[in-house]
């Protein structure tokens, strides 16, 4: 579904590359987690994939078409979630904002908004303003906006970074549920190795400047459960592998 070939990005001409020779493929309905140290270029990668910034080199193909601008049917949950919300719109206004331009009728948009807010546990906060909510709630508004959009591919940049452990676990399961029900493809950037292994079918370990150091297949049972899955010996092995890969000295670097 998504083919990334030899992607590189250098912000300042002649400067350090933020991304160099990134290569990977994501299949239809796959759930891929991306881990990498801070500053290794994960956000840069997502911004290129979403068509917001052009890569310096390389190509991105989404469903056979080259990505040049923001593609249809893609939603992107930003790392700066709170700054991606419109402070002059209510929570419900923020969630429904993109829907009108997607061609939904008012009633459809309202229904999708309500459903998405209920899914992230903010059903009763639709009339609040984002700045009246806590950081974690704002993050859930940004997630609800992406869910209501019903994308076919969802890019998420550390979306659960500022919620408590309990809410985080709930949101993880919610995301897995949505991923199954709506048959979408998810690219999920996280710093949390447990989260990466728990959620995904494959973990891409990036090294700086962003390139795939190792792709680790997560061969856990498809049904995930916060307690049972994490107790499996295989889960522990995969965690250790991801951790080792993150720490490994780089040998593939260009």
């Amino acid at each position: 579904m998504l083919v990334v070939s030899d992607l590189s990005k250098t912000y300042a001409p002649g400067g350090e590359p933020a991304m160099a020779g990134l290569d990977f493929t994501v299949g239809e309905r796959e759930f891929v987690c991306i881990v990498g140290s801070s500053g290794c270029g994960k956000t840069t990668m997502l911004r290129c994939l979403s068509g917001l910034i052009p890569p310096t080199e390389g190509s991105i193909e989404l469903e056979g078409r080259a990505v040049q601008g923001p593609p249809e049917d893609m939603a992107y949950v930003f790392q700066d979630y709170s700054r991606s919300l419109l402070p002059w719109q209510t929570v419900a206004g923020n969630v429904s904002f993109p829907l009108k331009y997607k061609g939904l009728s008012k009633a459809e948009a309202a229904a999708a908004t309500e459903e998405a807010l209920a899914a992230v546990g903010l059903a009763d906060r639709g009339r609040s303003y984002p700045w009246q909510l806590s950081g974690g709630m704002q993050q859930r508004v940004a997630i609800a906006r992406a869910l209501a959009y019903k994308p076919r591919i969802l890019l998420m940049d550390e979306p659960f970074a500022s919620v408590d452990a309990q809410t985080r676990a709930e949101l993880e399961d919610l995301l897995l549920d949505i991923w199954r029900r709506f048959e979408i493809t998810v690219l999920f950037v996280t710093h949390d190795i447990d989260e990466a292994v728990y959620l995904s079918q494959r973990v891409l370990v990036l090294h700086k400047p962003a390139h795939v150091f190792e792709a680790i297949d997560v061969d856990l049972p498809a049904e995930r459960d916060q307690m049972d899955t994490k107790k499996l010996p295989r889960f522990g092995e995969l965690r250790s592998r991801v951790l080792a890969s993150l720490r490994a000295p780089d040998t593939t670097s260009a």
């Binding site: 068509g51 939603a75 930003f78 991606s84 904002f97 993109p98 997607k102």
Partner: peptide
């Protein structure tokens, strides 16, 4: 205007 908000609008293909 916050660039993140503009990115958001672009990524959702707001005309």
């Amino acid at each position: 205007v916050d660039p993140t908000v503009l990115d958001m609008a672009r990524s959702y293909r707001i005309p």
